[in-house]
Design a protein around this nucleic acid. Structure first.
Ligand code: FES
Ligand code: FES
Lengths: 152, 152
DNA sequence: CCCAAAGAGGACTAATCCAGTGCTCTTTCC
DNA sequence: GGAAAGAGCACTGGATTAGTCCTCTTTGGG
């Protein structure tokens, strides 16, 4: 089954919460209780988002987290990248891979696969946190264009 | 890292090979050698594709596999489904899930997430094996449409 | 001034999943 | 009848992931 990690699910849920709280500070314990998730898991996730610059934190008594960027300036890709790392559907899908993989001599789909990967990355990058919370329908992903070359 | 399984990579590579061989029978040992993959792995993959109706097999001496459907009638989604199972980016992304997940009471992104999932499924479903072998550029994935509802 | 509440930063563990292996059975051809 | 090839499983070792735990720092309040 092709799936984001469970942590990513949690992460989206939690970040979603911050869009509903203005810029008030929200603490780990409260979130863990409200979303019935393990406290430690929530703590780890928020720490990661904080390091990645999606949230800002306030330590000490009455501390907590709040969004650092606007909900429509945070993409699904941003969130996923923090937790699941880059979208790299196949080994040689990474944009910056120059050195060929073990199968480059016999593989004829390197370039199309990279293009597929890029389409999905772009799509996830266009999907914002606000849209995720607003029940909108995502755009469709256009099929491959068999004559134009839009990627490297 | 968000990734298809390694087996899926192998699978695409192998199916790709069949597009270049007309309808000649190709056997496991030969493929394994040519693609320097473990014989057992190739065998397992081809068996799966065969069960799924993408390949047909001929047993016995001089047996082997060949494509059962035309290369432009086999989508990337077909191949991935056989090996990695359904694309279900989050637990509640499955189309047929009626019963709500553990977080449905606090989650506001169920519907958009399912739509995201569906867009990706559609995209993978449009990508054919021929296109994968022809170095074409995949279509773009259009951004979310915030007014129209194109999904359930 | 000291304590409690909260985040920071790691390391760690248990359980799950996946890639790869192995074996036996059946089919087919010569 | 024997060898080559696929069918059908069940299994294992290693990697990955979910979740835990502990200690340190920061902050505010009494
Ligand atoms: S699998 Fe790496 S070049 Fe195709
Ligand atoms: S996570 Fe299941 S309803 Fe949103």
């Amino acid at each position: 089954m092709i799936r984001f990690s469970k942590m990513a699910d949690y992460g989206v849920l939690l970040l979603g919460h911050f869009t509903q709280n203005g810029n008030a500070l929200v603490n780990t314990a409260g979130l863990a209780e409200q979303y019935h998730m393990p406290r430690t898991v929530v703590a780890n996730l928020l720490k990661e988002f904080c390091k990645a610059g999606l949230l800002e934190s306030r330590r000490g008594l009455h501390g907590g987290y709040r969004l650092l960027r606007a909900p429509d300036d945070i993409s699904l890709l941003d969130m996923l990248s923090v937790i699941d790392g880059p979208v790299q559907l196949t080994d040689c899908a990474a944009e910056d891979i120059i050195h060929q993989c073990d199968y480059s001599d016999v593989c004829h789909s390197r370039s199309p696969m990279r293009a597929v990967n890029q389409r999905i990355v772009d799509f996830l990058g266009q999907m914002t946190l606000s849209e995720l919370m607003n029940d909108v329908a995502p755009a469709t992903i256009a099929p491959l264009d068999t004559s134009t070359s839009t990627t490297s």
